[in-house]
Amino acid sequence: MTGWRQFMAILRKDLIRELRTREMIISMILFVLLAMVIFHYAFGVKEDVDLTYFTGGMLWVTFIFAMLLGLNRSFAQEQDERCLDGLLLCPVDRVTIFFAKTAGNLIFLLIIQVVAVPVFTLFFVHRGYGSDIVLFVVVLLLADVGICALGTLLATISMNTRSRDLLLPIIFLPLIVPLLIAATAATTTIFATGASFGVLGTRLLFLLGFDAVFMVAAYGTYDFAIGE
């Protein structure tokens, strides 16, 4: 029970801090929207070009890069103000810190997506996917959990190194590629042709497995990652 209260306290702290300054969320949203404009000009090589089969890739590349911004920020603040030392001095299980941080990052990513997905749909998706919306949300959530869990673990490591935010993309991107492949394939199918749980079954299971495996891995190694 105390674990749950500690979890909520850390999460609440992160949310309040972000909602007061809004610097992370605003930069992430702006980044995502700007990336869409760039994509339009980068891929619109001729008039009426059909970008449908690129949509999944465009969407997830944007989210992953936006998340890199967010992850760096979420720990940079902790270190600049020496918040983390205080947090580590508290009688809190290290793993609780991990889950609270992951949940915080997940909430920020979801806020970004609530803004970005409708705009993205308006810009690039020509086929209504209303009937697949539940499926789309499931893909989104499963992929988000994986991105945030792995991202939080690696951001914890990278903030403790000399090069900090420079290191995160180098260690995060190669590890996240499998999730990116599955999420992209599933999203493109939904946007392009529509799909059912049966059609995307393997991909959904894969995403679920990815989340579970890295949650367990992070659970086992976070004590070491956060250091003394």
């Binding site: 490591i157 086992g220 190694t221």
Partner: peptide, 8 residues
Amino acid sequence: FAAVFAII
């Protein structure tokens, strides 16, 4: 850190 990364 290297060990954690090697495991992952």
